[in-house]
Amino acid sequence: MIPAYHALILSGILFCIGIVGVIARRNLLFVLMSIEIMMNAAGLAFVAGSAIHGSYDGQIFFIFILPVAAAEVAIGLALALLLYQKYKTLDLWVIARSKEE
């Protein structure tokens, strides 16, 4: 049997990688992908919790995360398209600088 907290540790590792991606990457697409990673890690943590507590609640919350992630991706990508049309780039630093001007 696998100790459940190993799954939790895995989710923590994935979450931290996602955080580093959000902070360190400059491209909006990569930032969005990193956010997906973090959400996925959160879902993994819910499922592990469900295994520990022996109930369906964690699994249900994992299922709830899916539409949230889908909605977030839909809007995020639409915004990315708009930004790209306006600034011809997805570099967040460049966009931030052009907004100041």
């Binding site: 049997m1 907290y5 939790l8 499922v47 295994a51």
Partner: peptide
């Protein structure tokens, strides 16, 4: 996080329903 998990010694089955 890991320290917390180790310190807590989470119990319970690992088998998902």
């Amino acid at each position: 996080t890991i320290a917390c998990l180790m310190a807590g010694h989470p119990q319970g089955g690992t088998q998902l329903l």
